[in-house]
Simulated scan of single mutants.
Amino acid sequence: MTRTHRTVLLSEAVEALQIQPDGHYIDGTFGRGGHSRAILARLSPRGRLTVFDKDPQAIAVAEALAAEDARVTVRHDSFAALAALPPASADGVLLDLGVSSPQLDDPARGFSFRHDGPLDMRMDPTRGASAAEWLATATVAEMTEVIRDYGEERFAAQIAKAIDRRRQERGPIRTTAELAEIVAGAVKTREPGKDPATRTFQAIRIHINAELEALQQALNAALVVLRTGGRLVVISFHSLEDRLVKRFMTAHARAAVDRRAPMVEPPPPLLAQLSRTMPTPQEVAANPRARSAVMRAATRTAAVRRAPQARGGWR
């Protein structure tokens, strides 16, 4: 059953951005436009909103909105492309990570083991290799590494070997149901209330879409794109994303001491961490997919003279 998409932490995210009516804001993951519409409601006729998304279906919704509202600029691209925007040109950047309900609930997209469909998993199905194509050629070692590192799955080696056996015996794995069945047979113990395929599907999706690499690039770019005093707001939905965001914000909230010149006063930190926000019990009850969400916010505190280094990686 297809669910209506509910924007997670809608009011909290918009409040954290501290919208300036004449400002320029970036929604790095337009989705179905919940956050974008809330931002537009607070902008004056002179305000601007730039939206990014990789998903063609999301872009179609965004372009319809832009046709009605001249303040909106649409970019069919990953939020990693923030780096193409002019330096110090934005008053706020919002990144709402993860997969939307329409993507999860559409069997043709192949994101969910709850619906049988083509094993695709691409955010943009017009670009790159699908999950099925990757699984057809990946080595056991490559599959083990992806499932272990991106899914935090302790049975990664067993799952990778089971996938390889299945390929040799019956050919390529083409559907979500086939992959879920293989994983269920390889995972010997199950977490209460969690399907054994959860971690494997997450891992393969993250790998196929290069999600953590794109997030790191987007965070680095946000430091350059934001004006001093601008806000960076990120909503994460699993521990790998949140860990990366936390480490990034913490690293750039400290003064960078140059060990080669210890007597030179270090430049000021680039960020000031503001808050960590979780959904309320009421929001989780109304939208169970909000239960794992974590929102972190920070303020841009000093001008960047050069592109920041990728401090605070996910590992």
Rank of each mutant, 00 (worst) to 15 (best):
Q273G: 08
D164F: 09
V284E: 04
R231G: 06
P86Y: 05
R71I: 11
V304G: 08
L17H: 04
K246E: 15
A67F: 03
P45S: 08
L82C: 08
W314E: 12
E15F: 10
R170W: 10
G28P: 05
L82R: 04
A156V: 15
V99H: 07
E153S: 13
A184D: 03
D116I: 01
V284W: 03
R122V: 03
T137A: 11
R199I: 14
A210T: 04
Y150A: 05
S78Y: 07
F79G: 09
R259Q: 08
E211K: 03
E241T: 12
L135I: 12
R167P: 02
Q216H: 13
D91A: 15
A286G: 11
M249C: 11
R71K: 13
P279H: 07
Q216C: 03
R260Y: 10
A221W: 00
H115Q: 10
R259T: 11
V187R: 02
S36W: 05
G193S: 14
D164R: 11
A13P: 12
R6Q: 14
M263C: 08
V284S: 03
R311E: 14
A285C: 10
Q282Y: 06
A251M: 05
V264F: 02
F155T: 09
M249Q: 10
R167F: 03
D105H: 06
D96L: 06
R296P: 12
T2W: 10
A197P: 02
A218E: 02
L215K: 08
T73I: 09
A160M: 09
A67E: 10
T73Q: 15
A13C: 11
V183D: 01
R276G: 09
I204N: 02
T277M: 01
E181W: 12
M263S: 12
I59N: 07
I208K: 01
R75P: 06
V284Y: 06
V234N: 00
D53T: 02
A310H: 09
F113T: 05
M121Y: 12
H76Q: 15
G33W: 04
R122A: 01
L244K: 11
T2C: 14
R174L: 15
P125D: 06
D164A: 15
D258N: 14
R42V: 08
V8C: 01
S89W: 07
E153K: 15
T126F: 04
E63F: 01
P102T: 09
A16N: 07
P196F: 00
G47M: 04
A60H: 09
R305L: 14
R109Y: 07
